[in-house]
Structure formats: C-alpha cells, structure tokens
Simulated scan of single mutants.
Amino acid sequence: MSVRQVTAEERLTTSFALGAYAFEASPRSAARAEEFRGYLPYNKGNRTLVVEEGGTTLAAASAIPMRQNLRGEVLPMAGVAGVSSHPLARRQGHVRTLLHQLLDEMRDEGHQLSALYPFRPSFYARFGYVGLPKPRTVAFSPADLGELLAADLPGEVGWGRIGDGYQGWRAFTERCLNERHGFAIFPSYRDVGLRDRDEHWLLTARSGGKVTGAVLYRIDDHGGTLVADDLLATDPVARMLMLQFFGRHVDQVERITVQVAADELPELWLTDLAVHVEARVARPSAAAPMARLLSVDALAGLPAGPGRVRVELTGDRWLAGSYLLDGTTGTLELIGGTAATAGSPPAATLTAAGVSALAYGVLDPVEVGLRGLGEVPADAATELRRLFPRQVPYVVADF
C-alpha cells in the first residue's frame, strides 16, 4: 500500500471515479465519465492524495487552497473535499492515513485553518474539527413582498447572467471575505467555473455606484420556484432592493427560496411576510460545515477582549503545547514556552476542537467542557469568554 499525490490527468480514473461512486447516482454512464475531463481546469490547484495497492485506488482526499475570515483576519484555509474510499476498502484506516498526510502538507505550506462538509461529523471530530452553523433556507411567496413594489428605495439593482457579471461578483465576494467572520471563498481557478458554466442569473444591489448586495439564482419552471443561493447584503437597503426585485416575479413563480446566515431574522423583514426558515442537518446528504485550527499561529493578532488565560492544548497532532493567551492590549498575544507557565493566570485544558470552537465563536467555554472538549474551570471560562466573545460564522462556500 502506498500514498501519493496524483496529477491532474490521473484524477480522471482515481479521485473522480471514487468520488462519483460515493456522492452520485451509480453506476455512472460512459458519458458521465467523459464529463470528468471538463472538471480538470477547476481542480488544477487542488492537492489530491490517494491510497493505492496493486494498481487499485483504495481511497482519495483533496484539499482546496482557500481563504477564510477568522474574527476579522483573512487566513489561508485548507478546504477538504472529495474524501472517498473504495467500497471494498472501507473502515480500514485509509482515510485517516490520507487526512493526516494531507493536513500535514497543507499546514507546512502555511494553511492555518481547515474546513469541510462531513459525511459523518463524529468521524471528523476525531481529527479536531468542530461544527459550525449551517446557513438557513428561507421560503416565502412573492405575493408577500407586495408592499415593497411601490417603495422608493435608495439605490438600484443590476441584473444579468453570471457569465457576464462574474468579475463584479468575484470582487463583491472578496469584500465579503474581508468583512464577515467565517466567510470563505474558493481560489479563482475554482470559482471561475461559475462564469464558464453560466447557469445562474446574477442580481446585484448598488448604492452610489458601489455594489452593496448580490445573489445568484435560477428559476426551475413557470409557476415553480425561484431558487436563490446566499443573499449577500452589506446593509438592509441592499437586502430590500433585492427582495423588491424578487417581488416582481409574483405572476411567474409560486415560491422563492434564499439562503441566509444563521443570525439573520427573516421573520422581521416585512410585516406580513409569512416565512418558513429551516436549517436541515442530516447524514449523509445535508451536513453542516465543520472547521478547525491547523496552527496556533492563527490566533496571534486576532481582535480579543481583555482576558488572560493559560491553556494546555492536548491530544492533537498539530496544536499540542502550552500557551499563555493575553488579550489585554485588544489583540491576542500568544506566548509559548516557559513564559506560558509563568505567573498564575487561570488555566484550562483544551482539545483542538475545543480551542477551534472558541476561536470560531460557536461554543461558550462552559459548553466546551460539557461537550468533553476540554477541562475549563470557572475562572478560566471567564477569561476565555472575554478573549473569544460568541460570534456567528457564515460559511458560504460548499466544497
């Protein structure tokens, strides 16, 4: 048995083939297999590792070099994708072997974070990943947007196909990356597939000539559903402009669905808006994202409250060690070595998932202890709560 990185052409018969069996209807047709070649340009910068034995690919996993916002800092992030194994080689440790080597290599190249969509969350929890909120799906009737149709809103909307508007879309998502905690974007070689496939309408909101909102959408049929992806808006006016546009489809579609962040409150958008808001999580087809720190250096320099605590990071391949976390200056200072044990600040023991949960803002320090992700005494919990106030990460990219 051996582990190696495959070339672009080799993906056609190794990782793509296993991934198709794991995540698509099967057996695949010859035409479907030929379609794989069209995916190669959008995977050219990915790192794909496979386990092989006797010329047979037993397992595969890829990492996409992405970027993600962590509490206001944009950091290199390894998006793990395409994790799959041969049906006769499952539960034999091959995926574990691949993930260890894949994350080793991505960390060595400077990726300080990692995120993924799990086939089973408990499996990836063993690798230090912790769950993040799943964006909500909001469904409503365009008829309920009627009060917006006559509203005189400042700004304007732009409309066209993503193939024509891709550059503006990409620029706006770069802005969101810099402004929204948890936001992640693909490298340009992957994201450009949106332009090349040209399968979406692009709606933008503008104010003062500047794009302030954007959403991709499709219409499945006359009398059907307008299916929108993430409704990205930098302010309430941008959101209202886009909803007003959707309201003009009242005689075309029966229903509208959009994706929004977990901290959005669609029930307050309009007075008579009847909405259904759902975040469905199920195995294996409707997973919520997970993420983890790959390096403690990801913490250094983050905005922080005035806390001070000593932490022992245990049981992890990449984060183990003792550190003093000091946020008294307003930015997080990370002190290791013997200096981390000097003095007598409150102390906590955290797993990789525990410290990742705090950094991403998804668990309170007390919850970290209750979930078995560390030992956090009350005084340490107080300091950690100051250092890492709760925040809601908004992970948009589905990889």
Score class of each variant (00 low, 15 high):
residue 289 P to R: 06
residue 133 P to C: 09
residue 320 A to F: 04
residue 135 P to Q: 02
residue 270 L to D: 01
residue 16 F to E: 01
residue 106 M to W: 10
residue 354 G to R: 14
residue 19 G to A: 09
residue 88 L to I: 01
residue 118 P to S: 06
residue 134 K to F: 02
residue 317 R to Q: 14
residue 257 T to K: 02
residue 275 V to P: 03
residue 184 A to L: 05
residue 234 T to Y: 07
residue 174 E to V: 06
residue 44 K to M: 11
residue 4 R to A: 08
residue 235 D to E: 15
residue 337 G to P: 04
residue 198 D to S: 01
residue 140 F to E: 05
residue 289 P to I: 09
residue 280 R to E: 15
residue 139 A to P: 00
residue 281 V to Y: 02
residue 65 P to R: 08
residue 240 M to H: 08
residue 220 D to R: 05
residue 186 F to G: 07
residue 322 S to F: 04
residue 237 V to M: 13
residue 137 T to V: 15
residue 206 R to Y: 00
residue 328 T to K: 07
residue 99 L to V: 06
residue 125 A to Y: 08
residue 191 D to C: 06
residue 303 P to T: 07
residue 140 F to S: 12
residue 334 L to Q: 08
residue 222 H to V: 11
residue 249 H to Q: 11
residue 55 G to F: 08
residue 2 S to K: 10
residue 229 D to P: 00
residue 215 V to A: 12
residue 332 L to W: 09
residue 239 R to L: 15
residue 295 S to I: 01
residue 164 D to P: 01
residue 331 T to D: 05
residue 33 A to H: 11
residue 3 V to Q: 09
residue 145 L to E: 04
residue 348 A to G: 04
residue 57 T to R: 03
residue 319 L to C: 08
residue 13 T to E: 10
residue 196 D to M: 01
residue 51 V to K: 06
residue 189 Y to M: 07
residue 193 G to Y: 09
residue 325 L to N: 05
residue 277 V to R: 06
residue 187 P to I: 03
residue 326 D to A: 04
residue 53 E to P: 03
residue 233 A to G: 02
residue 324 L to T: 04
residue 138 V to G: 10
residue 65 P to G: 09
residue 92 Q to Y: 01
residue 190 R to G: 02
residue 194 L to V: 00
residue 42 Y to N: 03
residue 132 L to Y: 12
residue 350 L to H: 09
residue 385 R to N: 04
residue 314 T to C: 00
residue 49 L to D: 05
residue 241 L to A: 03
residue 114 S to F: 13
residue 231 L to V: 12
residue 102 L to G: 13
residue 5 Q to A: 15
residue 109 E to D: 15
residue 275 V to D: 01
residue 163 G to C: 00
residue 398 D to F: 10
residue 169 W to I: 01
residue 286 A to I: 00
residue 47 R to Y: 07
residue 68 Q to T: 13
residue 369 G to W: 02
residue 11 R to C: 13
residue 357 A to P: 05
residue 37 R to S: 08
residue 329 T to E: 14
residue 235 D to K: 02
residue 341 T to Y: 02
residue 222 H to F: 13
residue 377 P to M: 04
residue 383 E to N: 02
residue 399 F to M: 14
residue 386 R to K: 14
residue 184 A to C: 12
residue 81 A to D: 08
residue 230 D to E: 15
residue 156 E to H: 08
residue 378 A to L: 13
residue 269 W to V: 11
residue 141 S to H: 02
residue 365 P to Q: 12
residue 77 M to I: 00
residue 98 L to M: 09
residue 210 K to Y: 00
residue 139 A to D: 10
residue 49 L to Q: 05
residue 282 A to H: 05
residue 368 V to W: 08
residue 299 L to G: 11
residue 92 Q to H: 10
residue 221 D to I: 00
residue 191 D to Q: 12
residue 242 M to R: 03
residue 360 Y to M: 10
residue 133 P to D: 13
residue 297 D to C: 00
residue 129 Y to N: 08
residue 252 Q to R: 14
residue 4 R to Y: 07
residue 364 D to A: 15
residue 312 E to I: 00
residue 286 A to T: 03
residue 372 G to N: 04
residue 361 G to N: 10
residue 15 S to H: 12
residue 376 V to S: 07
residue 76 P to N: 09
residue 379 D to R: 07
residue 176 C to N: 09
residue 199 E to Y: 01
residue 71 R to D: 11
residue 371 R to C: 10
residue 373 L to P: 00
residue 89 A to K: 02
residue 29 S to K: 03
